[in-house]
């Protein structure tokens, strides 16, 4: 297992947002985490990245519990996140944002290689490399947030609702990119409200409801599951 979550509990003050959840992501998988608004998806990703401290539970990454490791040190271990709402550095240019993504990497030459790889993957970013990021369109900002996360060469990429607020064409483009990043060897944990798209791309999936995981299984099975279809696929 690349990532194994055990009994993870997270509180905001007295409110329990995660009620002891267990799940895992194997190397090379795409795992989807789906659920309604407020289910705790973002909380889960924030806890894995170390933005929030759990009250109880383990976050085992490559066999080691990292739940006490300061968040900023987890980037170098191979965990990168594309946060909800993109959160690009709005006053910085596209290129400066990408460089921030490689903050933990010291080797300049290697960094330039990664940057050209990112520009190959996102030609729009290359055209706009000197544009101030706050002036990019929503779709372009999503590309930038993904490119920025990839600059650290993560072994696992955590994506929080990458399709949010995008046009259908843009959504397809984003999912194509996720697929190709995965094909190049990056493991993906994908949080989505667009359950249909997520289940189509994923190997396995977990359903989160008010802080607990209620269903899990192969994505293709969940696509056929009646209660899932009713609750999350709008059938």
């Amino acid at each position: 297992m690349l990532l194994e979550i055990k009994g993870l509990s997270v509180y905001y003050g007295v409110i329990q947002a995660l009620k002891g959840i267990d799940f895992s992501v194997d190397r090379g998988e795409i795992v989807a985490l789906i659920g309604a608004n407020g289910a705790g998806k973002t909380t889960t990703l924030h806890t894995i990245s170390g933005m929030i401290e759990p009250k109880a539970g383990e976050i085992n990454f490559e066999g080691k519990d990292i739940s006490k490791v300061p968040g900023h040190l987890r980037v170098n271990m191979g965990i990168a996140q594309v946060p909800e709402g993109r959160r690009v550095f709005a006053d910085m240019t596209v290129e400066e944002n990408l460089k921030m993504g490689a903050y933990t990497r010291r080797d300049k030459a290697e960094l330039n290689d990664t940057m050209s790889m990112i520009f190959d993957r996102f030609p729009r970013l290359k055209e706009r490399r000197n544009q101030i990021s706050g002036t990019l369109s929503g779709g372009e900002q999503q590309m930038l947030a993904m490119g920025r996360a990839l600059m650290s060469k993560p072994s696992i990429l955590l994506l929080d609702e990458p399709s949010m607020g995008l046009s259908p064409i843009m959504v397809n483009e984003v999912f194509d990119i996720i697929r190709s990043v995965h094909e190049d060897g990056t493991t993906v944990l994908l949080v989505e409200q667009n359950a249909k798209k997520a289940l189509n791309i994923a190997d396995r999936a977990y359903v989160l409801e008010t802080g607990s995981i209620t269903t899990s299984g192969n994505a293709s099975d969940l696509l056929e599951d009646d209660s899932i279809r009713k609750a999350y696929l709008g059938d």
Binding site: A80, P83, F89
Partner: peptide
């Protein structure tokens, strides 16, 4: 400088800066 860039990042979005590996 690297430290200066970290300051700019933290000033714009503390959480995102942490996700870049910056010690806030």
């Amino acid at each position: 400088t690297r430290e200066g860039q970290a300051m700019l990042a933290v000033s714009q979005d503390r959480g995102a800066a942490m996700l870049m590996g910056i010690d806030v």
